[in-house]
Design a protein around this nucleic acid. Sequence first.
DNA 1: TATTGTTATACTCTATAACTATA
DNA 2: TATAGTTATAGAGTATAACAATA
Lengths: 157, 157
Amino acid sequence: MSYANGMAMPPTAVRAAARSHAELASVLRLSVMRLGRRLRKERSDESLTPSQMAALGTLERHGPLTPRELAEHEKIQPPSMTRILTGLEGLGLIDRAPHPTDGRQVRVSLTPAARQMIQEDRRRRDAWLARRLRELTAAERETLEAAAEILGRLARS
Amino acid sequence: MSYANGMAMPPTAVRAAARSHAELASVLRLSVMRLGRRLRKERSDESLTPSQMAALGTLERHGPLTPRELAEHEKIQPPSMTRILTGLEGLGLIDRAPHPTDGRQVRVSLTPAARQMIQEDRRRRDAWLARRLRELTAAERETLEAAAEILGRLARS
DNA sequence: TATTGTTATACTCTATAACTATA
DNA sequence: TATAGTTATAGAGTATAACAATA
């Protein structure tokens, strides 16, 4: 279907669609942000600072990285990352190993203890959400299952 | 349907359901957190600190509050809130008015400038999301519309 | 005397600048 | 000379303790 004025749809239909998308965007953003806040509350680790948790999470997602790469990923400066890593090393959560060929670089990796801690944290939050999911109808869970995939795609775009 | 052992389902069915719920919880949590991060990146206001943004957001959601109520809401101590509010007042984003009957208390409220700023910020993030939604199929948007309502309920529980 | 809000001071986290070691 | 990482020092942000005003 095409129109003489070169647009794919008449102006009124365009406006209606745009309004609908904006409305869906608004309610979806609100729901996602609120549930995100709620899930973050279940974390409540307290023993690590947010920066330390973020660094561990990045290492878990990306595998071993250099301090510089970590700093760039977290949008902080290398000296700040040095302090974060020093703390994590003291807690036995990361290892700092020399780079095999370049003596200047350092390879930071998670210790088994860190992996276990991350999984435990994840498990606790999943448990809270799984309990809530059990109270939904099967149809609602199917909706969420389909939505999860779409939301994941949106996050990556 | 009931069983002689008093459980609603035989053990295998219970296990299967539990695993399914845990799996759905895991993928849903990941998607929600990731999209939340992505949406937060669209904010990028830079002119206000995160604490200041949070205070404005709370005032916008709850209406006028006292500094103490605000501090409790943000889980910080009253002196810290004093500094945050001093900054916001200097920027013309909040008003501090005396309580009508209790001379000790102060009523903090948003200025019109703050409301406009908050709406502008919201509009920008909604615009990003609305653009992404336009690229989905109608069926996918319907799924998200249904999911938004369910996610909102989960966040409130 | 108890409560609200503020001021005074200390601590934590991050940033910039300077330094050391390696390429 | 350039780069990776660390150390030294300074600037935000928050906390605890002390203070002033009101109930």
